[in-house]
């Protein structure tokens, strides 16, 4: 295993277009630093995120996956984040069963106004994943090409 200090995790962040992606933009506008390990994928709504995407990320060697959406009740599409929350609860309990550490996945609500929260969340998440080290259990070597 690599030295914890050397290890740079691969983090995929799914951000809904209306709240969290705008929150990430605000973090940028305010020059709030967070590690470059985080790569954001823009989705229209947190409910667009299929649990399959998260499993795919882990298979491909992601060390952590975070899903960010609007706060409960604030969804641009009214109810999307509730679906996301339920689906992820189910997925995470399954990941738990598979032995994937809870800290590798997370759902966070970040509004378009919460640039500081976005940066803080990412800093915290990256630190937690770095602590765990690389994802081995779900990484599928057949996906490596």
């Amino acid at each position: 295993m690599q030295d914890v200090n050397q290890f740079k995790p691969k983090i995929v962040a799914f951000c809904c277009n209306w709240c969290s992606y705008a929150g990430a933009d605000l973090a940028g506008t305010n020059r709030l630093q967070y590690p470059a390990d985080v790569k954001i994928i823009r989705v229209p709504c947190s409910c667009r995120v299929n649990p399959m995407f998260i499993l795919r990320a882990f298979q491909r060697g992601a060390d952590g996956v975070i899903l960010c959406g609007c706060h409960p009740g604030d969804c641009h599409y009214t109810t999307g984040n509730y679906y996301a929350r339920r689906r992820m609860t189910l997925l995470f309990s399954m990941l738990d069963y598979l032995g994937i550490e809870k800290q590798r996945t997370r759902v966070e609500w970040v509004s378009a106004a919460e640039g500081a929260k976005f940066a803080a969340t990412m800093n915290e998440f990256v630190a937690a994943v770095t602590q765990l080290g690389p994802n081995k259990r779900l990484e599928d070597l057949r996906c490596k090409n």
């Binding site: 691969k10 995929v12 790569k39 994928i41 989705v43 229209p44 667009r48 299929n50 399959m52 995407f53 795919r56 990320a57 491909r60 060697g61 992601a62």
Partner: peptide, 20 residues
């Protein structure tokens, strides 16, 4: 599926990000 944000498009992004 969703036009502009299809399953295959999002997974292609996931793959590209994880490939490094």
């Amino acid at each position: 599926d969703l036009k502009g944000f299809s399953n295959s498009q999002i997974m292609a992004e996931v793959d590209a990000i994880c490939k490094m």
